[in-house]
Design a protein around this nucleic acid. Structure first.
Lengths: 211, 211
DNA sequence: AAAAAACTTGACTGATTGGTCAAAATGTAG
DNA sequence: CTACATTTTGACCAATCAGTCAAGTTTTTT
């Protein structure tokens, strides 16, 4: 067996982690081109050549960061459970994504930036893996609609709306902060946000008699 | 009167326009740092020094492009009319924004990219001008709600939801294309999208007896 | 038609930056 | 303790790129 040895040492594991954490912050703030290896190295507390010892190319760091963020991003989506109550499941999903937007906005931004620029690094992933997962959830939503447990809406656009809205609170935070400067710093802003979004999404904005 | 002469010639007007059009495309694809002046110059069909004759710094081009996109972006929002029917006005706004996402996605992307990276060039604008416009529309929405012509939802979050969703179709086009590859190329995809979004937003996704 | 103003560009320059290299320092296995 | 592998870094290189400059060409004015 010509096995390429891939023994990962303790130091390697630690340093790769440090580098990826530092890189996430820098990439999220400045984008791929706007980020310099020196910036990441400084934030990671090591020399540039040392960093390049762990990730030989700038792109390697970027791809690794992206893979991590993709996972963050998709995990709550995967957790949507066909057997659960439709509204509960979607509410849970929205809350989970908003919580992520709050706790790890950098992650969301790196992802958004990649898509915005045409997904040069993860285009393939989107067309294969993401599409597959989405197809599966689309089927779940259709079933819910067929069973009369959800209003008859277009599943794709429903998903896009939820993605867009939850993503927005991480990616456009600066804009939100400029428009509602007082509330955005509140401890419970994200809970208030979740409640507001869920209310609108569930009930719509058309006035009803029964209020 | 010490008047600085600002006589704009015909050639200046034409060339500035050509440059800004070219720059919009390049900035939207590669971001500020990712764009080189040479790229813009080539796309504009002129030499780099000539381009710099019209806009002395790279940032000048960028700021000018941003101002144009901001205008695109805000015009439909300004058109929301307090005297109109609430649902009609919001539907019109959604349709206008989606139409823009379709016809000028570059514009939307440059704007998104700027916000994503913390709005270094237009932060002030957001905190003053944008905030003012938004405050005014928030008041309109509150009035509509008080009059019982709109369900009692949080006006800020309603606006954010609409912004997020409509923006999404321009900014995340690659992702949408990966997930619904067949439909996205259709002539009437944007009309279908508008209809789906409006349905969800107006009626919500909670199933009702009266279907 | 001549002079002035506006426009255009080839050839540079200095700064930045992704990546290399060889040598030193540190860790580890026997 | 010793030999070997792993980790670390200062010094460096080549490419890229924002911006300059001086010399030319074209357009406008008189």
């Amino acid at each position: 067996m010509t096995q390429t040895k891939t023994k990962t040492t303790r130091i390697q594991e630690i340093n790769r982690g440090i580098i990826l954490d530092a890189a996430l912050e820098v990439f999220s703030a400045y984008g791929f081109r706007g980020t310099t290896i020196d910036q990441i190295a400084e934030k990671a507390g090591m020399s540039k050549p040392n960093l390049l010892y762990y990730f030989p190319r700038k792109e390697d760091i970027y791809v690794n960061v992206l893979e991590k963020t993709l996972d963050d991003w998709l995990t709550p989506f995967r957790h949507i459970d066909a057997k659960g109550d439709p509204l509960d499941e979607l509410a849970k999903y929205i809350i989970a994504k908003l919580k992520l937007s709050e706790s790890r906005p950098e992650s969301s931004r790196v992802f958004a930036n990649e898509i915005l620029h045409g997904a040069p690094a993860i285009g393939d992933f989107l067309q294969t893996h993401l599409r597959q997962i989405v197809d599966r959830k689309i089927a779940v939503i259709r079933t819910w609609i067929d069973e009369g447990r959800l209003a008859p809406v277009d599943p794709h656009h429903l998903i896009f709306m939820i993605w867009a809205t939850t993503q927005h609170y991480a990616d456009f935070k600066v804009q939100i902060g400029a428009v509602v400067p007082d509330r955005v710093e509140d401890e419970d802003f994200y809970e208030e946000t979740a409640a507001a979004i869920i209310t609108i999404l569930f009930n719509g904005i058309r006035p009803r008699q029964d209020y």
